[in-house]
Design a binder for these strands. Structure first.
Lengths: 154, 154
DNA sequence: TTTGCAACTGTTACAGTTTAACAATAAAGA
DNA sequence: TCTTTATTGTTAAACTGTAACAGTTGCAAA
C-alpha cells in the first residue's frame, strides 16, 4: 500500500508520544522496549512476534513478548488478532481509541481508519444488550489498492 | 448471558442448516464433523480447540482441527480471533455474512449482532481507500448484562 | 459387481508460539 | 546507604497447530 504518510515523520511522532507516555506513567522506555518499538515502526506492515525476534539478535522469547505486552498495554501498538501480528498505533494521543484496521493480506500493510467510523453503531447495539465493552477489534482483511493494481498487471 | 434464544431450537435449526449445506456442497457430514459441531453447539459460549478436543475422547489433534476447518469454511461456525476460540454461527442461511460479536470475557457467552450494524460504514471507508475486503472480524470484548449483575451482587 | 477415484481418517512426529518460574540486576526514592 | 520496585536473564516447559503419508470408505462409472 502506498505510503500515504511521510513515514519518517510518522515514526518520529510515535517515538515522541511513546517517550512522553512513559514519563507520564512513571515507567521506563528501556532498551528492549525501544528496540521492539523501532522494529515495529519500520513500516506500517503487520509483523509477527517471530519476525520481530529475528531482529532482536538472538534474544530469548520472553524479552520480546514482554516488550510487546508493555507496548500494547501502553496503547503504542495494536495486536492484530486475525493475523496474530503487531503494528504501530497511529492514535497514541487517545489511549482509549479503538483500532479499525484495513489489512492487506498480500503486502501486510495496514491502514488505520479514524475512530468513530463503525464504532458508534456497534456501541449503540452493545448498550441495547446491556453489554459493557472493554476492548474492540475491527479488522478487515483484503487486498489494498496497490496490490490490486499489481494483480491486474501480472 | 441469559439464553435469549431457546437454545434447543437454536441448535436444531443449525443442525438442519448444516445437513442441508453439506448435501448441497456434495460433502459428507461425517461423525467427527458432526461431533465437533454438536460440542460447539452445546451453548453460545466460545470454546477453544483444546476444550473441544477434551470432549473428543482422546482423538488426536488433527481430527479436531480438520473438523474445525471444515465447519469454518462451510460458514457453520465462527473463529473468534481475539480469543482464539470457536462459536456456532447463527446466520448459516447467508454464507457471506460478517460476524459481529459481543463477547463476554467473564462467562464467554457470545451474542451475534445482525448483519449490517457496523459494516456499512466500514465498507464505505474501505472503498474510499481502494481496498477490496475479503474477510472481516468485528469483535467487541467486555462484560455482559448478567455478569455485570453478578458483579454488583458480589 | 467390480474398479477406480476422491474424500476422509488414523497416526506419528514435529514445528511454532507463548508462558511459568525464579534468580540476578538496575533504578529511584527514603 | 538502604530499601523497594521495576526490569532483565535464563531455562525449561506448556500450549497450539500442521506436515506427511499410509490406510480406509463412499460413490459413481464401466
Amino acid at each position: 500500500m502506498s505510503n500515504i504518510c511521510d513515514h519518517n515523520r510518522c515514526k518520529k511522532s510515535a517515538r515522541k508520544a511513546a517517550e512522553h507516555l512513559c514519563k507520564e506513567l512513571g515507567v521506563r522506555f528501556t532498551t528492549h522496549r525501544r528496540r521492539v518499538f523501532e522494529i515495529i515502526w519500520q513500516s506500517h506492515k503487520a509483523m509477527s512476534a517471530a519476525q520481530i525476534m529475528q531482529q532482536m539478535d538472538n534474544s530469548q522469547p520472553p524479552i520480546t513478548y514482554r516488550a510487546l505486552d508493555f507496548l500494547k498495554n501502553a496503547g503504542l501498538i495494536h495486536h492484530v488478532t486475525s493475523l496474530n501480528a503487531y503494528v504501530g498505533c497511529l492514535h497514541t494521543q487517545n489511549p482509549n481509541h479503538i483500532g479499525q484496521l484495513l489489512i492487506c493480506t498480500s503486502c501486510y500493510n495496514i491502514v488505520e481508519l479514524e475512530p468513530k467510523t463503525a464504532i458508534e453503531k456497534l456501541t449503540f447495539e452493545a448498550k441495547q444488550h446491556g453489554f459493557r465493552p472493554n476492548q474492540t477489534h475491527i479488522e478487515m482483511l483484503g487486498t489494498c489498492k496497490d496490490c490490486l493494481k499489481n494483480e491486474r498487471n501480472a
